[in-house]
């Protein structure tokens, strides 16, 4: 079947038929001739100028809008913003070391306006401790999660995407780490090194990556079989491009939810370590405050309840945000349009 147009393949213009007039479309009252051909090109195709090339951010705006309309997510976000503000303002509001003794011990909350949340058994300001403790909790929670996510994503996506012996080796590695009870591993890691914020953070990251890796691996295993991944391969995309641009966005919702829960559990792990006295002894954290108040639970229960509530609400806020992000980022869950 010889085609006369087979010979020439114009390199510049995609298609000669498309080299249409780019002058602005005429106003109403088309001539009969125009009317007859109005459906050959969509009428607005001619307005496809550079102006419309800059409207590619609407999807991000839409996700943000969905997120901001979600009351649960907003509650969580507001509380988290409060915690972040507390962490940032702590050195300004209470420049003094929160571990220094400033008043009579056992001032109950609400009885002394200078110490709204009272003082503990050594006369240290509880509110100052809560604010400074927020710094440690957030720092450890976020940095440890970033470490865990980075390691887990790389290992999980490699194992899930490539499969075969790569998968076998990496799954064995994940299983070796997972057979050790994570909190005991954490205690051992912190006990070997000196208990400092950096060591605690790194150790929490190390014990939390296998969860991410397993999740990412299972998502990738499911998604790599999808038709659109085969279609992407048929377009000549390389492995890294397919992993990052085609599969990862589809695997994100569970990863995002997990990462917000990971921040929460990292905060819990740090608190538990501090509670056991394995935290940094020179810094106050919510966990160490609970640990200090434990022996006085019957007489001064507020010493454990106040930092405990701080942990509960922060963890809850992170979970609410995770759910809200999941709803917003997955276009199939949004009922817009």
């Amino acid at each position: 079947m010889s085609n006369p147009d087979t010979a020439e393949r114009a390199p510049v213009v995609l298609n000669p038929a498309l080299a249409y007039d780019r002058s602005p479309p005429k106003p109403d009252a088309p001539t009969p001739n125009e009317e007859r051909w109005s459906n050959v090109h969509a009428p607005d195709a001619m307005r496809a100028t550079t102006a419309s090339a800059e409207t590619g951010t609407t999807s991000a705006n839409r996700a943000l809008r969905v997120f901001l309309r979600n009351p649960n997510a907003m509650t969580g976000l507001i509380f988290l913003v409060l915690v972040v503000a507390a962490a940032l303002l702590a050195p300004v509001l209470y420049p003094e070391d929160p571990l220094s003794m400033v008043a009579r011990p056992f001032i109950w909350p609400g009885t002394n306006s200078t110490y709204p949340l009272g003082t503990d058994s050594l006369g240290r300001d509880v509110l100052s401790g809560i604010l400074h403790g927020a710094r440690i909790s957030l720092l450890v929670g976020i940095v440890a999660t970033v470490i865990g996510l980075a390691v887990g994503l790389i290992i999980g996506s490699t194992a899930g995407y490539f499969g075969g012996w790569v998968d076998d080796v990496l799954v064995k590695l994940i299983e070796i780490v997972q057979t050790l009870p994570s909190f005991i591993l954490l205690v051992v890691l912190v006990a070997i090194a000196q208990p400092s914020v950096a060591v605690v953070t790194g150790a929490v990251g190390i014990v939390s990556w296998p969860t991410v890796a397993r999740l990412v691996r299972s998502e990738f295993r499911a998604i790599r079989e999808k038709d659109y991944v085969v279609a992407a391969r048929s377009l000549g995309y390389g492995h890294v491009r397919i992993i990052i641009r085609e599969i990862l966005p589809n695997a994100l919702p569970p990863i995002i939810v997990t990462s917000s829960v990971m921040v929460a559990s990292a905060i819990l792990m740090e608190s538990a370590l501090s509670f056991m006295g394995l935290g940094d002894p020179n810094l106050v954290s919510w966990g160490s405050m609970i640990g200090d108040g434990r022996e006085l639970l019957r007489t001064a229960w507020y010493l454990t309840a106040i930092p405990g509530l701080a942990i509960v609400f922060t963890v809850l806020a992170l979970n609410l945000i995770g759910d809200g992000l999941n709803d917003a980022l997955n276009p199939r869950f949004t009922d817009e349009r």
Binding site: G56, S59, K226, D227, Y228, V230, A231, A232, R233, S234, L235, G236, Y237, R245, E246, P249, N250, L252, N330, P331, R332
Partner: peptide, 30 residues
């Protein structure tokens, strides 16, 4: 060569497009 000189269309248009990317993204990528 794939996508540039030999391209392929699949049977299932419902599942052959990446659901979380806009169609513009998917065309421009290649």
């Amino acid at each position: 060569l794939r996508g540039k000189e030999i391209a392929m269309i699949f049977q299932e248009p419902m599942t052959s497009l990446n659901p979380v990317l806009t169609i513009g993204r998917q065309i421009t990528e290649s």
